[in-house]
Write a protein that binds this DNA or RNA. Structure first.
Lengths: 191, 191
DNA sequence: AACTATTTTTTGAATGGCCATTCAAGTTTC
DNA sequence: GAAACTTGAATGGCCATTCAAAAAATAGTT
């Protein structure tokens, strides 16, 4: 128990450090030593906890995906109509806990390297599929069958595109504004 | 004259090889030796022509941006109305010469690493700005002032998002279909 | 055409540095 | 005292880049 707790604390610290270090230096060039320094630990201890650099990256990805899942649950709890549930998907993706430069940056780096890592691409596929299902379920209730796929693609691509741009931003992001803009896009698409 | 020609031929061969090799192995792990083998040359000769790995990557990026520029010119030549010019932007981005998996993949890798390289981020900024201007110019003629920015963001993010998804695809892409879908999104946004 | 000089191109091998991972030996926690 | 945790230093491999020397193309000369 006490033992478990220490492990969890370290895990979280190291993952936080990974987000920061990868954002600062780039996924492809960041070193274990840099991440370790950011966390106030040693490179060796990261391997003790995560087995390898790839293991750390996978854990970090899981951490972000989990945040997204939590946000989804929160948002869906109060959404009742199809339109509200579309808003909910957007709200979750642009949640205050997720929509910040360092995390968007990391997300994009993962995207870029997912095709070259079994472990990452699996996570990536699962997540994409879940978002897709959510969109489809609501859109089917709002649009004629032949318009559903176009609308879904428009929304999902928009979402991805916003993350992509956010990752390039040099100032801090405004999640509230992002959510509002996303609502307007939803309205546009289902009007 | 003759001298120039050889250099250009090599440049093109090496850039083609770079696209293929980076797509196959990933930007962060591909080695000079792999690119060289793909081109039937040696790693040393790449340095002879491009100075460094980063130089090669920049040249490859320039090559893609140039393709995009050519496509834009081609498409704009026949577009007369604002709506047609919006179509033209989309057509250029999803042109047959550009919209294929290996190139989308490369594009995304550049996106991800642009923030960490002066030379790449400069190219990236210029390109993004150009696309932005094109969209704005046409949208201002079609929409009330307060709707322009939302529409522009929706279109530009959509475009980025499609590229992003295309890069993950395992089958070949269908540029014609992509252009049609993009037209529908344009229609949706300016309706 | 033939031959040479000059420039351009190509490459194998060496260089030097970097970095993930391992490990043995400590330190802390229970 | 045992198990969990931590780390400095060593290991081993990899890779971009350089360099010197060869090969190929080109120009110049007769």
């Amino acid at each position: 128990m006490g033992r478990k707790r220490i492990r969890d604390i370290r895990n979280e610290e190291l993952i936080e450090a990974t987000v920061i270090a990868v954002h600062r230096r780039g996924y492809s060039v960041v070193t274990m030593a840099e991440i370790a320094r950011e966390a106030g630990a040693s490179a060796a201890s990261i391997n003790y906890y995560f087995g390898s650099k790839e293991g750390l990256m996978e854990a970090t990805m899981r951490h972000l995906l989990n945040k997204l899942k939590q946000a989804m649950i929160r948002e869906y709890a109060t959404a009742t109509t199809p339109r509200e549930r579309l808003y909910a998907v957007m709200n979750a993706n642009f949640d205050d806990t997720l929509f910040e430069v360092a995390q968007c940056s990391l997300w994009m780096q993962f995207w870029a390297s997912a095709p070259y890592s079994q472990r990452l691409s699996r996570l990536h596929r699962i997540n994409r599929h879940r978002v897709r299902s959510h969109f489809l379920a609501e859109l089917r209730r709002l649009l004629p069958a032949e318009g559903v796929e176009t609308a879904r693609q428009a929304l999902q691509c928009y979402m991805d595109g916003v993350w992509l741009q956010a990752a390039q931003s040099d100032g801090p992001l405004d999640p509230t504004k992002a959510r509002l803009a996303a609502h307007r896009v939803v309205d546009l698409v289902i009007s």
